[in-house]
Design a protein around this nucleic acid. Sequence first.
DNA 1: CATCAAGCCCAAAACGTTTTGCAAAGGATG
DNA 2: CATCCTTTGCAAAACGTTTTGGGCTTGATG
Lengths: 342, 342
Amino acid sequence: MTTRVGIREVARAAGVSVTTVSHALNDATSSRVKAETQQHVRDVARNLGYAPNRLASGLRNQRSQILGLVSDEITTTPFAGAMIRGAQDAAYERGYVMMVVNSGLDRELEHREIIMLQQHQVDGVVYARLYHQGVELPQELAGMPTVLLDAVTGDPAVSSVVPDEVNAAETAVETLIRAGHTRIGMINNVDDIPATHGRLDGFRNALRRHGIEHDPRHLVIGVAETSGGREAALDLLSQPGRPTALFCFSDRVAMGAYQAATALGLRIPEDVSIVGIDNLELIADALWPGLTTVALPHYEMGRWAVNRVLDDIENPGAPAEQARIACPLIERGSVGPPPAGA
Amino acid sequence: MTTRVGIREVARAAGVSVTTVSHALNDATSSRVKAETQQHVRDVARNLGYAPNRLASGLRNQRSQILGLVSDEITTTPFAGAMIRGAQDAAYERGYVMMVVNSGLDRELEHREIIMLQQHQVDGVVYARLYHQGVELPQELAGMPTVLLDAVTGDPAVSSVVPDEVNAAETAVETLIRAGHTRIGMINNVDDIPATHGRLDGFRNALRRHGIEHDPRHLVIGVAETSGGREAALDLLSQPGRPTALFCFSDRVAMGAYQAATALGLRIPEDVSIVGIDNLELIADALWPGLTTVALPHYEMGRWAVNRVLDDIENPGAPAEQARIACPLIERGSVGPPPAGA
DNA sequence: CATCAAGCCCAAAACGTTTTGCAAAGGATG
DNA sequence: CATCCTTTGCAAAACGTTTTGGGCTTGATG
C-alpha cells in the first residue's frame, strides 16, 4: 500500500489543476470543465484508485456525512440488530454512514457519548430505544436534527417512529376471529407502557368490530416473560368455558402459553390457538408448531428514522412527523379452527 | 444554539493565542505553557463549552479516532448486538468511536462499504462474523490495521479472536459428569464449521479425561435448529439404555431436546439432564426449567478485538495474535443427578 | 485589425486544528 | 555590564478538500 493518493496526485497525473479535478468529479455536468476533460479526469482518478478524504471535505463543507445512532441497550434481543441494519442500509443508500453509541441506562455516559458524536460533527442523530416508550430528549441534542426511534416525547416538534401497537393487536386478534374463534383470551403486560395500552385497545377494537362481546374473565395480566405467560395461560385455560384462543402480549409470553397448554394436555392448534407479537424468530420458529405472530417492524423503523433525519438535514424546516409503522402478520402453525365441541 | 465555538474563540476569550490554547488543552503537563495559564485556558474552554472539531484534528493528525466495524449479518440473533456493544465500550474507553457497516452476504456491497469507511479515514477495522468461521480477508483491507472477530484466516499475520470451542464443550460435558452422569449423548451439527469439530473434540476430551468410554450410538448429528434437535433427541432418548444426559450443540438444539423429552414423557432434569451452548437468554431463560448452558463470549470478543486493533494502531509492528476466549458456564435448572434406576 | 464574449481553466482562500521554528522577557553567570 | 540560558508565548504552515474570482484562449463581430 503506497501512500494515499489525493486530489493533487490526480491533478498532476491528468495534467490539470486540482480545481478542475474537483469540478470534474463533483459537478454532474459542469459548465466549468469541458466534457472531454471531465471524462479524462475521471478515468485518471479511477485508475489511480482515488478516494476523496471525507475528513477534508467534511471540514470544508461543514457536513460530515455521518449520522449518530444512540441507543439504550443493545443486547439480549435481536431487535437492536434489526434497527441498526435498517438504519445503516438507508444511510448507505444516501451516501451516509452510521456511528453507533450505546450507553445502557447511564445518563452521564450517554451525555459524554453524545458530545463525542458532536465532536465528530455528525450531521444528525437518531435516538433509539429498544422497546416503544416515552423519553426525554437529552439537552445536548437540542438544535441538531434528531429523530426518535421506537420512542416518543411530548414535544410535537420532534419526529418519531414507533410500531402501530393498536393495529398490530387488531391484526393478531382478527386472525383468530377469521379462524372462527369467539372465546378469545388475552394475556397482557403489567407494565405501564404504550404497548400495554395499545395492544389492549386493539384487542377490544377487533372484538367490537366483529360484534363479539368481551368476557372480562378472559383478560389476564402478568409479567411479560415466559413464566408470566405460563401462569396466566394456566389460569385462563383451566377456566370452565375456557378460551379457545389466546392473544399473547409478546412471543415470550406465548412461549409460556405453549408450556401451559402442554402441561394441561392441550394440543396447539387443535385444542387451543395462540398468537403472539414480536416475531422473535428465535422463539417463533423454534416452538412446535411454529408460532403465528405479528412482526414488530424494527428494520423498517430504522430505515424510516434515518430517512427522516436526512430529509431534515437536506431540507430543514419541514414540519415534524410522528409515524406509526404497520406490523405484518407472520403465519406459522399455531392458529387453527376452534375445537368442534366449543 | 449559537454558532459553534472553536479554538479561536477560546483563545480570544482567554486572551492568548490559539497555539497556547492547543498546548494548554492537549499536553498533559506542558513545558510550553505555564501551569497557571493552562488552568485558566481550561476554565475558559469549559465555560464556553468548547468541543474540538475532530474532522479538523483528524485531518491535521492523520488520525480520525474512528474504527470501522464490518459484519456480515446483524439480525435474527442477539449476538451481533453483544459484539457491537463490546466493541463500542472498549472503543469509548480509549477515546474512539465505531462506524458500523454490514453487507449481508453481498461481496460487492461489502467492497463499497469498506471504501466508504476508508474515505472516512478509519484508523482500523474489525471484520466480524456472526458465527465462528473461516473467511478470506477483503483485498481492500490489506495494509490497514485489521482484526477478525469470530472468524479466522489461514494467514498467521492477522490477529483474530474466536470462542474456545473445545473448552466450551469440555465445560458443558464436565458439568454433566460432575452431576454423576456417565451415559452422555451428544447432538452435534452437520455443518463443516469450526464449532462442529471443536465441540466434538471437547466432548471426547471430557469423557476420556474421566475414563468414560464413549458409546458411538450416543452421538447423533442433525441440523442445528430446534427441529433437528427434536428429532435427534427423540432418536437418542428412545434407545434402550438411553443416555441420562444430553450435550447439545446449541441452545436451539437443546430447545428441540426439551420438546422431545416432553413428548416422551421425560422430565428435565429428573429423567434427563440437558446442557446447551450459546446462552441465548431468549431461549435459555424461557425454557422450563431454565437451560444450563455455556455462554459464547460475544461481548468480550468485541472488546478484545477493538483493544487489539487499537494496540496495533498505537504500537505498529507487534506480532499478530490468535486469541481464543474462554466460555463460562451459566447454570440454570436443566442439570441434575441421573435417575436412580440408571 | 481591434474589440468582445464565451468557454475553459487556474490560483488562492477557507474550513479548524496541531506543531514547528522563532522571538521576547527575565534570570543567572562571567 | 555583556552574555547566555530558560521560560513562555506567538505566527505561520500544513492536513485535503471546495469554491470564488479572475485570467487566458479562441473565435466571432464591428
